[in-house]
Design a protein around this nucleic acid. Structure first.
Lengths: 355, 355
DNA sequence: CTGAAAGCGCTTACAG
DNA sequence: CTGAAAGCGCTTACAG
């Protein structure tokens, strides 16, 4: 019995006794109230140090009926793009005095449901979720109905009335197409990504709109859906090139797909850039080191994470749900994979924030 | 007041009333006790569903004096190598019925100390930490003394009596050197990584021992410490090549450094592999897609994560600290960057587990 | 500025 | 198999 824990747990009662005050006073000191005499405060703090007191947040939260823990649920933590989102979120919450907990769903909606339940049982004050693929649009309804602030990050849930923070996918795709058109391309394909992905839908929309604005027919543009992987990208390119009117350039669903496209291109002896224009999406860390360095649409995932956290914080403060959609700015980072001169300046601007 | 939360919180008291039983019975149902009459159980469960009851883990943990939350503290979540570790840990804990929470320290020992404190206040039943660079060896002493199971992952803390799960760095380095020697190299350098890193020390030890076994003088081998980054790798290579007796191959501190070395090599018109042997360490996801595909030492980070979780679980169950060191197997993955024929078979074996 | 008392939502013996 | 009572470690009015 005594060996279970090295020490008995010390509570505010012991602290109160040691400092010669009441529990209430200790509690006030703990929360930094200035209604306590400085000398008393020092005495209490000394006792806390001496006895090795550890604050019990569970007990505090129970009484307070509000917790300082917030959660974030991420679809794929091994993907640096989402890991950065998580880090941005974490940072904002931490500096606001909240305790952020991260959970990973590995793109599994079932696991996601479990994690949501757990977070709720843990009494989170708010939640940010980057939903797993295939998340039903009512997955967060229970939480919302219970008054827990929720915001969606990176991926919207069609049909759900939930705040979201997503990059401007349409505009990003448009910027890419405009660049390609500027370089003289007329047959531009959209390559890779699952057909049912909401994000892909948005990117495809921007793609089509930009094509139309350039006087090109979106209907005739090749649109090939595949897994959002390197292999998927390679397969998409192969398929595109067998077309009777093969494209001369492509906007890829994301950078990973673009890497696959470049790979397949080189396998065929074609050089990404001069021989076939390739533009990615996301500007993952690898993009700048790829061969050739990838032209892509930069999405500031860490910044979006911070924004999402701020939205949750705002709702917690307001004490009521606020539904708002934040669409984050994106910009074209010109490197070498789309042909034309690489402009070092733009690339620097994006990368420096990492340091 | 009524608008703060959409619903009043429903507790087991309401459930008990609705089901016509006492609180205790509801509690038993909640924990799946089989001492409750099936019919009663169903009645309680129905009430739970109808009233939208949410279990309050904080309250439960308070009374139980044991919690089901476990924590993991990761030095750099944006590094996929560590993200995979986290995912492995999470998976094991989850299937054991624990609620794992992840926190990121961004290699900052100060932040790490805060996070440790927070986790402790939250009442974690156990903790896994992949320590930030520069973590003092007594950083976890408080937790340990309080009887909280702790295990170190990936990085040991010299001088601390804490369980750890780390890859076999010495053996990995040895395998790499043996391969290089086998390919005919005699002047082999060790490139990159911070000089004060414990991991680097271990890898360097294996490097030296293997050199000695091959009849080469470890003292004469070039050993250049730099930041563990691409730039660091490139700089290390440049510096190595200016040496009066330049190496013909290198074992790099990790894969990222190796990428930098390859980059610098190509910049000089040298081809990694045929012209200069390069071996990395870790086998990050990028390694297989690099140009050329990187020969490296595979470290199963997800597997190490699972192992670390099991150790924590074991300690929780035992109710007392157990100090043990697990050294995870590593193996050489031969690709193209070290010259010689690439053996596809071996590579496959490593990669398939990801799927 | 400080103290006594009640209560947050559960679990845990202990009766029955 | 079920119920009444106490208690986990805090915070919160409310007195003084």
């Amino acid at each position: 019995m005594a060996q279970r824990k090295a020490k008995e747990k010390v509570t505010i009662i012991e602290i109160a006794a040691a400092a010669g005050v009441s529990k209430s006073t200790v509690s006030l000191v703990l929360k930094g109230s200035d209604a306590v005499h400085p000398e008393t405060r020092d005495r209490v703090n000394a006792a806390i140090r001496e006895l090795g007191y550890v604050y019990n947040r569970g007990a505090a939260n129970l009484r307070q009926a509000r917790s300082n823990i917030v959660g974030m649920i991420i679809n794929d933590l091994t993907n640096p793009f989402f890991a950065e989102l998580a880090v941005g979120i974490e940072r904002s919450f931490q500096s606001a005095g909240y305790v952020p907990f991260i959970a990973n769903t590995a793109e599994n909606p079932v696991r996601q449901a479990e994690v949501i339940k757990l977070m709720r049982e843990q009494g989170v004050a708010g939640l940010i979720v980057s939903p797993a693929r295939g998340t039903p649009s009512d997955a967060l309804d229970g939480l919302q109905a219970a008054g827990v602030p929720v915001v969606l990050a990176m991926r919207r849930l069609p049909g759900a009335r939930i705040s979201s923070v997503v990059p401007d996918n349409r505009r990003g795709a448009r910027l890419a197409v405009e660049r390609l058109v500027e370089l003289g391309h007329r047959r531009i394909a959209f390559l890779g990504g699952y057909a049912d992905s909401v994000v892909r839908g948005e990117r495809l929309e921007g793609f089509g709109a930009a094509l139309a604005d350039a006087g090109l027919d979106p209907e005739r543009a090749l649109n090939i859906a595949t897994a959002p992987t390197r292999d998927g990208g390679a397969a998409a390119l192969e398929s595109a090139l067998t077309h009777r009117e093969p494209p001369t350039a492509a906007l890829c669903f994301n950078d990973i797909v673009a890497f696959g496209v470049c790979l397949a291109l080189r396998r065929r002896g074609l050089q990404p850039g001069p021989d076939f224009g390739v533009i990615g999406f996301d500007d993952v860390q690898e993009a700048v080191h790829a061969d050739p360095p990838l032209t892509t649409i930069a999405v500031d995932s860490m910044g979006l994470g911070e924004r999402a956290a701020q939205m949750v914080l705002k709702m917690i403060e307001a004490g009521r749900p606020i539904v708002e959609e934040h669409v984050g700015a994106v910009h074209l980072v010109i490197r070498e994979s789309c042909g034309g001169p690489a402009r070092q300046g733009m690339e620097k601007r994006t990368r420096e924030r990492r340091a």
